[in-house]
């Protein structure tokens, strides 16, 4: 209510002055009187503190010695059991901890009990005086004036141009961070394709053995890689795109959209294992609810509905791999995925 006195037009934009807050305040009584410590009054107490500090430093010495025991006696090169390793690690840690805490606590105890504990007062000074600031501005003005940059716009403008351009090569230098040597178009094309192709067998991860349709019983889940993955160039890159989860459910319970009727083999379906959110492997399959869950951000996909997103942050369904059986009864891909696998990106479309 008393605030309105600040509101005059003359004072607009200015800040409250220190003195108008200071009125009607309690006066500063100054620092409270100093209370001497036990050690200040009693020399025996001081002596006791001295012994305590020395004891703490001795503990530190013992800690360091203990470290050497831990290093040479408890530790050895070669195979150690976990129990031995745990004991050695704990001993190294405790040795170091006592060595360090002994010094630290000792010094602080010394400072607290034996060094003077009178609080001192130091005055603050202005960071820099008005005059210094004015002098500095004058110097800078003089320097600018002597360069003549204001009078010679041709020099100034070409310099600005040169400086603006000069860093650009440094940015372009990083073009070859991409070590593939391919054009952007080729790379984006490559992202759309995986090792899956017509007739490529589905094999177990990591053994690489092919899977028969009859092996896949209701409720089971196979982690699948394409046949020949281990011989692929850039094996991990290919694996990062091609991993597939193979499951079997009752075909009656599946809602199959048009065009995908023959993508499964008697209820055996294959879906990309790479989450369409940010790419974690979605491998948590619940056989009764038919849910697939990503352990990283909990996107949940419904296998009965062609892996549509039913919960969590993922933005689109998991790509399905069309499969069939070959003449030997092994599961094979009909083709590559019909859309890019993994997280969405600008060029995905």
């Amino acid at each position: 209510m008393g605030d309105h006195s600040h509101g005059s037009p003359e004072e607009s934009g200015t800040v409250a002055k220190a003195d108008d807050v200071a009125q009607d305040r309690f006066p500063d009584p100054g620092l409270p009187p100093h209370r001497p410590r036990l050690a200040d009054r009693d020399p025996r107490a001081a002596k006791r503190h001295e012994r305590q500090v020395a004891l703490l430093f001795t503990i530190s010495i013992i800690g360091t010695l203990f470290f050497f025991v831990a290093y040479f006696v408890l530790g050895r090169l070669g195979e150690m059991t976990f129990a031995e390793l745990r004991v050695q690690n704990a001993a190294l840690g405790l040795g170091t901890a006592f060595a360090m805490l002994g010094i630290g606590v000792g010094i602080v105890h010394w400072a607290k009990t034996l060094m003077p504990d009178h609080e001192l007062v130091e005055q603050r000074h202005e960071i820099s005086s008005e005059k210094d600031r004015q002098d500095a501005v004058d110097i800078i003005d003089t320097v600018i004036e002597e360069t003549g940059i204001k009078r010679r716009p041709l020099i100034r403008n070409t310099l600005i141009g040169a400086i603006a351009l000069a860093p650009i090569p440094a940015i372009f230098m990083f073009r070859d961070l991409d070590r593939t040597g391919k054009t952007a178009h080729q790379m984006i094309e490559q992202m759309r394709h995986t090792l899956w192709d017509t007739g490529v067998r589905l094999t177990r991860d990591p053994s690489g053995t092919p899977i028969k349709a009859s092996d896949v019983q209701l409720g089971s889940a196979f982690h699948v890689i394409p046949e020949g993955l281990e011989n692929a160039e850039n094996m991990l890159n290919e694996k990062a795109k091609a991993v597939v989860l193979l499951m079997r459910m009752d075909p009656q319970e599946m809602n199959i959209s048009e065009g995908r009727e023959d993508w499964h083999v008697d209820g055996i379906v294959a879906y990309s294992k790479i989450c369409t959110h940010v790419g974690c492997p979605i491998a948590l399959y619940e056989q009764h609810t038919h849910h697939l869950l990503c352990p990283c951000h909990q996107s949940t996909f419904d296998l009965a509905n062609e892996c549509k997103v039913i919960f969590g942050p993922a933005g689109h369904a998991l790509p399905q791999l069309p499969i069939t059986v070959d003449a030997d009864g092994y599961l094979v891909a009909q083709s590559d995925f019909h859309e890019p696998v993994g997280p969405s990106y600008w060029e995905r479309g």
Partner: peptide, 20 residues
Amino acid sequence: AKAGGFFFIVFGIVAFISGL
């Protein structure tokens, strides 16, 4: 002394945690 000693204390605490 306090600040210097405190370095050793922090070191000691980290060593303690790392050991156990």
